[in-house]
Deep mutational scan, measured.
Amino acid sequence: EPLWIRPDAPSRCTWQLGRPASESPHHHTAPAKSPKILPDILKKIGDTPMVRINKIGKKFGLKCELLAKCEFFNAGGSVKDRISLRMIEDAERDGTLKPGDTIIEPTSGNTGIGLALAAAVRGYRCIIVMPEKMSSEKVDVLRALGAEIVRTPTNARFDSPESHVGVAWRLKNEIPNSHILDQYRNASNPLAHYDTTADEILQQCDGKLDMLVASVGTGGTITGIARKLKEKCPGCRIIGVDPEGSILAEPEELNQTEQTTYEVEGIGYDFIPTVLDRTVVDKWFKSNDEEAFTFARMLIAQEGLLCGGSAGSTVAVAVKAAQELQEGQRCVVILPDSVRNYMTKFLSDRWMLQKGFLKEEDLTEKKPWWWHLRVQELGLSAPLTVLPTITCGHTIEILREKGFDQAPVVDEAGVILGMVTLGNMLSSLLAGKVQPSDQVGKVIYKQFKQIRLTDTLGRLSHILEMDHFALVVHEQIQYHSTGKSSQRQMVFGVVTAIDLLNFVAAQERDQK
């Protein structure tokens, strides 16, 4: 057995438009009618409502009807409940999964919650491996369901041993009777949507819809739904939504950006999952974080739909894509998950301010006199920076000697690579993860907040409520011999709460 199987392995699926269902090699399930009293909570997966979006479509000038398939009504709160249950049931049916076995899954959280929910009911041990950027709410729900959680670096490539995929496979090879159901490759993922989600949409719309818009992560949702719609409703256009920084969209030119990270969760990847059939997507749109969270908040405030950030991405694209539809036509959007997962993220004004998705003037509360002053007023001194090749031991000596707790790590040209902190280095040394002679590049981390000289002290204040420091950066445009230009970030300084307090105190003292 291989040590790991690539999540982007070539698909062996034989589905073709027009091929009889009787030739399918898979076990198919028909939607079942729910009894009045459910035998367990797993029976509350599927049969989610279709809700008309009344205000947002009109606000953006849509002539067509805009409908939302509300997947956050599933038992675990997301569309991923469907595939989690289906993968477990299919693994039980073919004898792969037996009582007492362990389920391991690399996930952005929602599939993990679905699997942990099913594992709690069915009696399996469950280990979820997820990147650090995923919300604390997801972690809390997983723990409450009895799952064990392993976190991995957000910026690790999918084929790196440190990625959530790599760590999951390492655990599988170490733990007896453990299984990775593997949402990236498992046919049960798109089949769950082909058999149930798509049929529900067709039934709820009486077979009449002209466009379907869905955000894409593993691709199982859009693949399964689109294949069924292509068979039953061939005139329906399928629109895929991919965040900026991901590479799922086609044509490839759409993916060209210097951005590699994004805040919206559960969609987009740096590889093409095996289950994603991009041939059934008629057109791709890219979405960005700001519009995703703005539209998610709009869905909550104006439509009462308590959905997550990827739902915002989907609707932001839908109001663009559906401009081509006329009166009497219908566009369906998939709202994948609930706001429950993001209470401390985009639902929080403070978080939105820190990330730059909300401006101070958007909030009406009274601010102190210094709130709208610029960061450049602080008069920061030149920063202490270190090269990635310097040793951890030497870096600790320098920081202690100069009285700093942290320093930016830059390359020879001064471009920011990340940050090192005294606390992080000492804990890594004590844990045996690094040696004093190791290069400081081994303990770089990139989960820090950046701020510009033109940003306000109010925004800085919000950042420092949650973080010990902020890195002050400025952009530099560099022209190359080819005539092309590129933008790079340079370090201007490091600012802490002490710097802000000293500035405010000094100004008030001078005024007296």
Rank of each mutant, 00 (worst) to 15 (best):
G240N: 04
V241A: 04
D242V: 02
P243M: 09
G245I: 02
E250W: 07
P251C: 05
E252M: 11
E253F: 08
E253K: 09
E253W: 02
L254Y: 05
T257N: 14
T257H: 04
T260M: 15
Y262I: 02
Y262H: 07
E265A: 04
I267N: 06
G268R: 02
Y269T: 09
D270F: 04
D270S: 06
F271S: 04
D277G: 07
R278H: 02
T279S: 10
T279R: 12
V281P: 08
W284D: 02
W284Q: 02
F285Q: 02
K286Y: 05
K286L: 02
D289G: 06
E291W: 07
E291I: 07
A292K: 02
F293R: 05
A296D: 04
R297V: 02
M298K: 14
E303H: 11
L305P: 02
C307T: 15
G308T: 02
A318F: 02
K320Y: 13
K320N: 13
K320A: 07
A321S: 06
Q329D: 06
R330F: 02
C331V: 02
C331F: 02
V333L: 14
V333A: 14
I334L: 08
P336S: 10
V339F: 06
R340A: 02
Y342A: 02
M343Y: 02
D349S: 08
D349W: 02
R350E: 05
M352L: 09
M352N: 02
K355T: 02
F357L: 08
F357H: 07
E360I: 13
E360R: 10
E360C: 08
D362V: 14
D362M: 10
D362T: 12
L363P: 13
T364Y: 13
T364C: 08
K366G: 09
K366R: 06
W370M: 02
H372Y: 11
H372A: 05
R374C: 12
R374D: 05
Q376Y: 02
E377N: 02
E377V: 15
S381C: 02
A382C: 04
L384G: 07
V386F: 10
P388T: 07
T389P: 13
I390G: 13
T391W: 02
T391A: 06
C392S: 09
C392P: 10
G393M: 11
G393H: 15
I396G: 10
I396N: 10
I396E: 08
R400P: 13
E401T: 02
K402I: 09
F404R: 04
A407Q: 12
P408H: 02
P408F: 05
V410A: 11
D411I: 11
E412T: 11
A413D: 02
A413V: 12
V415F: 13
I416E: 02
I416H: 04
L417W: 09
M419R: 09
T421C: 08
L422G: 09
G423I: 02
N424F: 15
L426R: 10
L426N: 09
S427Q: 05
S427G: 13
S428H: 02
K433G: 08
K433S: 08
K433C: 13
V434M: 14
P436M: 09
S437F: 12
S437G: 14
S437V: 12
D438R: 15
Q439P: 08
K442W: 11
V443G: 13
I444P: 14
I444Q: 11
K446I: 08
K446Q: 15
K449C: 15
K449V: 07
R452C: 14
R452F: 11
T454H: 08
T456Q: 02
L457H: 02
L460V: 14
S461C: 14
S461F: 12
H462K: 13
I463G: 11
I463Q: 14
M466Y: 11
D467Y: 02
F469A: 13
L471K: 06
V472I: 02
V472W: 11
V473A: 15
V473M: 13
H474W: 02
Q476S: 07
I477N: 12
I477A: 13
H480A: 12
S481T: 13
S481W: 02
K484V: 13
S485W: 12
R488S: 15
R488D: 05
R488A: 12
R488T: 10
Q489W: 10
G493D: 12
G493Q: 02
I498Y: 09
L501A: 06
F503Y: 04
F503E: 02
V504T: 02
A506S: 15
Q507R: 13
D510W: 13
D510Y: 15
K512Y: 02
